[in-house]
Every structure is written in structure tokens, then in C-alpha cells.
Amino acid sequence: MPKINGNEIRVGNVLEHNGGLWVAVKTDHVKPGKGGAFAQVEMKNLRNGSKLNERFRSADKVEKVRLEQKDQQFLYESDGMLVFMDSETFEQIELPADILGERRPFLQDGMTIVIEYHDSEALSASLPQKVTCKVVETEPVVKGQTAANSFKPAILDCGVKVMVPPFVGPDEDIIVNTETMEYSERA
């Protein structure tokens, strides 16, 4: 694995530190008036989710880990485990449902997601950036409500509540950004 200097750590880098795998969530480069510059890095453990704040000087060496990304197709869920199939080898794997976190409701049958592996261990999973959902329930359009930035709450078929523009009605398909969990556009 390549070693990088402490000042080269960027958000999203996966590092091997203190015997664990950590992803850099936030980095702040500090240059105090007295003493050498350092990078203040907030990291999250990929295995157990714990957080850690660490200072790295430019002379400190840290191991940068490359994760292998594989496209996997979602098949079904059973007993809190999600079953995925590798699109190339057709092998099936089971992962805990909490690997997707709060984005779990957006997972649909047959959806292809990207799972990141370190050796043969699945560490994280990410959904496509945009997902099509159907609006199940929303308030009716109020005539004359044309303020530029007015939104109303809507409940989607997956159970998630998002804010939508006033022109979106029930039984309409919309596209939701899974990273920000916000309305993106009409489908």
C-alpha cells in the first residue's frame, strides 16, 4: 500500500491507522504562529463507525488504502440481511441492512449499487446518485402560491418524507438525490 504524507490527506481517502481502516470525513490544514503546520483530520472507522480526531504533521507517513469497487445487483432482503449478486461472477453475498444507513429506503429490487471491498471484506455500499420514486401523499396545489422558493412536504412510496415544489401532485414520479435526500426533478 502506498504511504502518503500527513499533509496529503484529503476528504474521502481511506487510511490504515492504529490497526483499523478509517475514512477521512473532514480535513483542516492548520498553520499556527508558533511551531510547524499540521493537518487536523476527522476520521470515521469503516468497520464499527466510531469517530477519531487526529493531527498529522507533514513528516508523518500514513498508509493510504485502495478499495476495490464492484457493481452488485440487489436481489432481496431476508432477516435484516440484504442479498446482492455480483454482475460478473453471479456470486451472491449477504450484507447487513445497516450498511446503507439512512439511504436504505431508496434501495429498489434489481437496483445496481457499488460495494467497496478491502481484500474480501465489504466495507461500504453506495446507491446511484439519483433514484426515481412515486409521490404517495402531498398537499393539494394552493392557487396563487407562486413564491420562488416555496416547497411542500410529500411522502414517497418508499416511506421517505421530502420537500417538493408546489406543482408536484400525488401519483407523480420524481427523481430524488440519494446523497442529499432532496427532490431533484420530475421523472
Rank of each mutant, 00 (worst) to 15 (best):
D79I: 07
M43N: 03
K51T: 15
L100W: 01
A97T: 07
Y183E: 03
E42K: 11
P96N: 10
L156H: 00
N45Q: 01
V131W: 03
C133M: 15
T178H: 02
D109E: 13
V141F: 13
V83K: 11
N45M: 08
V62T: 06
R55D: 15
R103K: 15
Q69K: 15
F167A: 08
H118Y: 14
K61N: 06
E179V: 12
K130G: 07
E77A: 14
V135Q: 06
Q73Y: 05
G159A: 00
N48A: 00
E54V: 14
P170M: 13
D119N: 14
S87T: 14
G159M: 11
E182A: 14
E182S: 10
T138G: 06
D173K: 15
D60C: 05
I93C: 05
L82V: 10
M81W: 14
G101N: 01
M163I: 10
L100A: 04
Q108P: 03
I155F: 04
D171F: 03
I99A: 04
G110Q: 09
E102S: 14
L46C: 06
V162P: 11
T132Y: 10
S150M: 11
Y183R: 01
L75P: 02
D109H: 07
D86K: 09
G169Y: 02
D98E: 12
T138Y: 05
T180A: 14
E116R: 13
Q108S: 12
E88V: 12
P140D: 02
V164L: 01
L95H: 08
N177H: 10
T89N: 12
D71K: 15
G159L: 06
R104T: 12
L95S: 11
Q92E: 12
E121W: 00
P166V: 12
I175G: 10
Q145W: 01
D98I: 06
F74N: 02
F106R: 05
D86P: 05
I115D: 04
S124N: 13
T132F: 12
